[in-house]
């Protein structure tokens, strides 16, 4: 269905409002810092922030912190995905296990685990290990829960049909269970990735020695607000890029099954 002329005009108008809103925000920000004498400690000039942002990108001073955060993220997500898929698959093999473990996992998942950060720091130290452990714990639950949901609720008739046609265990897994479960599992992996990223950056802002979150707090405590704004923009951009990437991978995985 091609959009009619009215629809196209409406969409154009919406876009215009969005752009105007953002420009108005920027102009207000600029005026606040230049005309209305808001302290640059609280709200730095957008031009200065832009310059600092450019400096960060060109000098490459972000690379060290970015590497720390990404390493933590990759290790934490690998652990969470591996254990989450494994445990989720094992639990999903019997209806009884699902009834026993699923509410348990769901209950723990609803607790904000990041509040256990002091305990993690106590056990794993201030370095990357505590962030990896925390990120892995937090992202384990959505992955395990979605794996259970994916494998556990495959339609019975499909399984019975495949069995009655003489499918082996491996064939049943490859051609029936996996295709049915994959979309749900991929969603779980995406959720797990997002919460791992959030919790790692969050725990870095609370207690750490290095990493992007640490850098933001370091600049905030040094009252270098412009550089802090630039770093916040940088982290948000990194998070947006990673999330888009993972969503794209998810969509790709769904199509290919």
């Amino acid at each position: 269905m091609t959009p009619s002329r009215d629809q196209r005009e409406a969409r154009l108008a919406s876009r215009a409002v969005q752009v105007a809103f953002l420009i108005a925000l920027l102009v207000l920000w600029y005026l606040a810092t230049t005309r209305w004498r808001v302290s640059p400690l609280l709200l730095p000039n957008p031009v200065v922030v832009l310059r600092d942002f450019w400096n960060i990108l060109t000098t490459g001073e972000f690379i060290g912190d970015l590497r720390v955060t990404l390493t933590e993220l990759v290790i934490a997500f690998t652990i969470a995905a591996g254990s989450g898929l494994f445990v989720g698959y094992l639990v999903s093999r019997s209806q009884y296990c699902i009834q026993v473990f699923e509410p348990l996992f769901a209950g723990i998942y609803s607790v904000p685990i990041i509040l256990f950060l002091p305990l993690y720091v106590l056990l794993f130290g201030l370095g990357p290990a505590s962030k990896i452990a925390l990120g892995a714990t937090i992202s384990f639950f959505p992955i395990a829960l979605n794996t259970i949901a994916g494998f556990g609720y495959v339609e019975r008739t499909l399984v019975i049909a495949a069995r009655s046609m003489g499918a082996s265990d491996l064939q049943l897994f490859r051609f029936v269970l996996l295709p049915a479960a994959l979309p749900v599992i991929l969603t779980g992996m995406r959720m797990g990735f997002t919460v791992a990223l959030l919790s790692i950056i969050g725990s870095e802002t609370i207690a750490s020695l290095a990493g992007l979150g640490h850098r933001i707090v370091y600049l905030a405590e040094g009252m270098e607000t412009a550089a802090m704004f630039a770093y916040i923009a940088f982290v948000v951009a990194i998070a947006a890029i990673l999330n888009t990437l993972v969503s794209a991978l998810e969509a790709r995985g769904r199509r290919r099954r």
């Binding site: 409406a10 969409r11 108008a13 919406s14 409002v17 969005q18 809103f21 953002l22 990223l197 959030l198 950056i201 969050g202 802002t205 992007l212 979150g213 933001i216 707090v217 905030a220 405590e221 802090m228 916040i232 982290v235 948000v236 998070a239 947006a240 999330n243």
Partner: peptide, 22 residues
């Protein structure tokens, strides 16, 4: 809704912990 929901979704999607120092 069409104009402002994308902006709200964008804000919702950004990690808020990064602006905790702010």
């Amino acid at each position: 809704r069409k104009s402002f929901m994308p902006i709200i979704l964008l804000l919702y999607g950004t990690p808020q912990v990064t602006i905790l120092p702010l």
